[in-house]
Write a protein that binds this DNA or RNA. Structure first.
Length: 773
DNA sequence: CGGTTTTTCGTTTTT
DNA sequence: CGAAAAACCG
């Protein structure tokens, strides 16, 4: 078995490379994933490198999973079963810290391996509470802006004191204080934010020679994908992990660097040759994805950037169709044009896959409405995800607080949910006391209760709360994740609260929680601890939820990174929207990043590319319609590659009002509407895909990406009670057909199709359904 | 204290 | 237009 076969000369050279640093400059669609997977397979098979000695880092969990599967199936052909470690930086760091992090306590007092991970929302809560303490509000600075400044500081290894020292205005010195308090709160809660996961891993490796050397021995080969979007900390991590060997291969494309705003440092890739003077550099410039027209157009746009290494992609494929340019009257018309055109393509070939890309998430709504007008199914990537839903966050916060009471943010989130008489003033008192005495909220509550510092009513409520939490805490010692979750739902009165509400919304929330219990059940079966379960929930990203099989996908260009679609629309090419207004007034670098984003968007297309803009657009619903100027990027596409399109007749008379109401309504009720976005189906899929280490569980055989049956398609019918094909009666959805049954007894899970409500995943015991003979 | 209503305010991109 | 904060009321 020769894994170098079938590669072009440059790919082959890259895949055959063994020792020493390697920089692969891989243009869009040049087969870089192929190179990475084949190189790893080659190392294992030809050079006898054990899988465990190879670490490959990707940008998303999804990409990691796909890469792992591809390597496994490649190796299976050669009869090998060794699997490399494939992971994101963040997941890798969590593992590292949970396994080997004990030594960190020496330099981060209070740290234990059962640390918590604080996500975006948690971070915002911290900032809010600090603002409150300082008597500030968002007029001082946006919560997010403060967070982002702190994050940048952290990644530049700047301390609050450094902030203070370089402060030239009162704003920055205030920010220094906020930064300091922010760090304090994290430590107090034994929590790490996303930056810390990387930063503390770096500190651990620096500080703990035993751990560092163990990893240096273990990792013989390191590969990093999407290297252009790594930040300085990730760079440090790379250097620490490779040790003296320098067997590091990075793959990237400076023209696709689109995360500068998040701290990605384009110098990492631009300076690689300086950092590793003996590095071999290989350019992959043959594009296998797009037609000539698309490639030329995209290249012409990005050629306007100064900050690049410079390369020119070429392709063997045909000229293809010209790029469609559509000038819409307004945003609604733009959306209708897109939906109408999609419809025409899909009528011709129902197996086609289409993506609609945009700069900002809010643009999706109008396009959704238009697609609904045509009754076309679609998925939206990003926006509101499962684990961000209030009820899911609530219950996960309970789980966190129960598992580690020092986690103040989680505790504060749920201290009065459901309402149990611990009101605003009481909570403020507690926070104040905690602050003054350097205690966590939990400790503060304990101390204050012991000293009878509360008025009678609050004291009673808090006593009950304390006892409940303690009981639940004990339960974690003897019960698995799923059981603890159920206890939480039951003992805290959360489920009761939802039952009492008895609205369609509360019903949906209960179902989401059922789904969470399902996920926990599966985690428990895999033997995952509470912490592992929570880690997965914290590290899932929007991009992990992309369903590559979906017919029509709506997503931001950022989320489209690494994906490809036969047909691509890029909507909203207007000055101020794309390029975004903030980049227009910003530095030239910011504009170059916007242009790279445009390049990324355009190069997602295989066969057809459409660029659209609206002559006027209203900012918010009822506001005035404002005239727009076509995006400068449109002018950068050579005219002879463009085909100016006119709207199909009929579009202009279409009314989206009904659809608007419908999209809103269904989004609110979270009911299946044809989009799997937020649907129960999608949620379970997302949990199923998470964090399963397939090495042992799955046979090492070529795996076609789990072909989900087309929605509405029926699996083979088996007639058994609750079995596939039987009908059931549900209290609120009425009668439905069982599509799938998993598990037995109390834990039986059913996937049921209810007319008018779509697919629902249900736990038979909880949903109170009856077999309908 | 807790739930409801009114007002304000504002939209990048996210591991 | 919609989310989140603020004001208001029982």
């Amino acid at each position: 078995m020769d894994f170098l076969e079938g590669l072009n000369p440059q790919q082959r050279e890259a895949a055959a490379h063994v020792e020493g640093p390697l920089l692969i400059l891989a243009g869009a669609g040049s087969g870089k994933t192929r190179v990475i997977t084949h190189r790893i397979a080659h190392l294992i098979h030809q050079h006898g490198v054990p899988g465990l000695a190879i670490l490959a880092v990707t940008f998303t969990n999804k990409a990691a999973e796909e890469m792992r599967n591809r390597i496994i199936s490649l190796l299976a052909k050669a009869g090998e079963s060794s699997t490399p470690l494939v992971s994101t930086f963040h997941s890798f760091c969590v593992r590292l810290l949970r396994r080997d992090g004990a030594g960190l306590a020496a330099i981060r007092p209070g740290f234990t391996k059962t640390f918590n991970i604080y996500d975006d929302d948690d971070q915002i809560s911290i900032i809010k509470s600090i603002y409150r303490g300082l008597g500030l509000d968002e007029t001082f600075m946006k919560y997010r802006a403060a967070l982002s400044a702190i994050s940048h500081g952290k990644n530049q290894q700047e301390t609050p004191q450094d902030f203070y020292k370089r402060a030239t205005d009162p704003k920055l010195s205030r920010l220094a204080v906020i930064y300091e308090k922010y760090e304090e709160k994290l430590r107090q809660s034994n929590a790490l934010d996303f930056d810390d996961l990387l930063l503390e891993s770096v500190r651990l490796l620096r500080h703990d020679a035993v751990v560092r050397e163990a990893w240096n021995r273990r990792i013989q080969f390191l590969m990093i994908d999407e290297y252009q979007d790594t930040n300085r900390t990730q760079y440090e991590l790379m250097r620490l992990l490779t040790g003296a060997k320098h067997n590091v291969a990075v793959v990237g494309d400076e023209d696709q660097s689109i995360y500068g705003w998040r701290g990605a440092d384009i110098r990492n890739i631009l300076d690689f040759e300086r950092d590793f003077p003996n590095a071999k550099v290989i350019r992959l410039e043959q594009n296998y994805r797009s037609t000539k027209n698309i490639l030329e157009a995209a290249s012409a746009v990005v050629a306007n950037n100064k900050n690049r290494k410079g390369k020119w992609l070429w392709t063997d494929s045909g000229q293809g169709t010209k790029i469609g340019l559509y000038e819409a009257l307004d945003a609604e018309n733009e959306a209708l044009f897109i939906a109408d055109t999609i419809e025409k393509f899909l009528a011709q070939d129902p197996t086609e896959r289409v993506a609609v890309l945009y700069r900002t998430n809010f643009q999706s709504r109008q396009i959704e409405e238009a697609l609904r007008r045509y009754g076309r199914k679609y998925i939206v990537v990003g926006g509101f995800s499962f684990y961000q839903r209030a009820e899911v966050k609530d219950v996960l916060s309970y789980l966190k607080a129960v598992a580690s009471p020092q986690d103040s943010i989680s505790l504060l989130r749920i201290i009065n949910v459901p309402a149990r008489g611990i009101g605003k003033t009481t909570v403020e008192q507690i926070e104040q006391y905690a602050l003054e005495n350097g205690l966590s909220v939990w400790s503060a509550v304990g101390r204050m209760l012991d000293e009878h510092m509360f008025p009678g009513r609050a004291e009673a409520s808090l006593n009950v709360f304390r006892r409940t939490m303690e009981e639940l805490g004990d339960a974690t010692k003897t019960h698995n994740v799923a059981e603890v979750l159920r206890l939480i739902l039951d003992r805290t009165g959360y489920l009761q609260m939802l039952e009492a509400e008895a609205t369609p919304e509360s019903e949906t929330r209960r179902e989401n929680l059922n789904e969470l219990v399902n996920a926990a059940l599966e985690a428990a079966e895999r033997g995952e601890s509470v912490n592992e379960f929570l880690d997965h929930a914290a590290l899932v990203s929007d991009a992990d939820q992309v369903d590559t099989q979906a017919q029509v996908s709506l997503l931001t260009m950022h989320n489209a990174k690494g994906l490809e679609f036969p047909i691509v629309f890029i909507a909203g090419l207007e000055e101020g929207l794309f390029p975004h207004s903030r980049s227009v007034v910003g530095t030239p670098d910011a504009m170059e990043e916007e242009r790279r984003l445009c390049y990324v968007g355009m190069t997602r297309a295989e066969k057809r590319l459409f660029l659209t803009w609206a002559r006027s657009r209203r900012k918010w619903g009822g506001g005035p319609s404002e005239p727009s100027i076509p995006s400068r990027f449109l002018n950068e596409v050579p005219k002879d590659l463009l085909d100016r399109l006119r709207a199909a007749a009929g579009i202009s008379q279409m009314d989206l009002l009904a659809e608007r109401a419908y999209v809103r309504e269904t989004a609110r009720k979270n009911v299946y509407t044809g989009k799997t976005y937020n649907s129960v189906e999608n949620i379970s899929q997302f949990f199923n895909e998470r964090g399963v280490q397939p090495a042992a569980a799955k046979p090492a055989v070529a795996q076609v990406p789990a072909a989900k049956p087309a929605l509405g398609a029926r699996p083979p019918v088996k007639k058994k009670p609750f079995g596939a094909g039987s009908t059931v009666q549900h209290p609120s959805y009425g009668r439905g057909t069982v599509l799938r049954k998993e598990g037995e007894g109390d834990d039986t899970k059913l996937t049921v199709s209810f007319p008018g409500y779509g697919l629902k995943k249900i736990i038979a015991k909880y949903a109170g359904i009856k077999i309908d003979e």
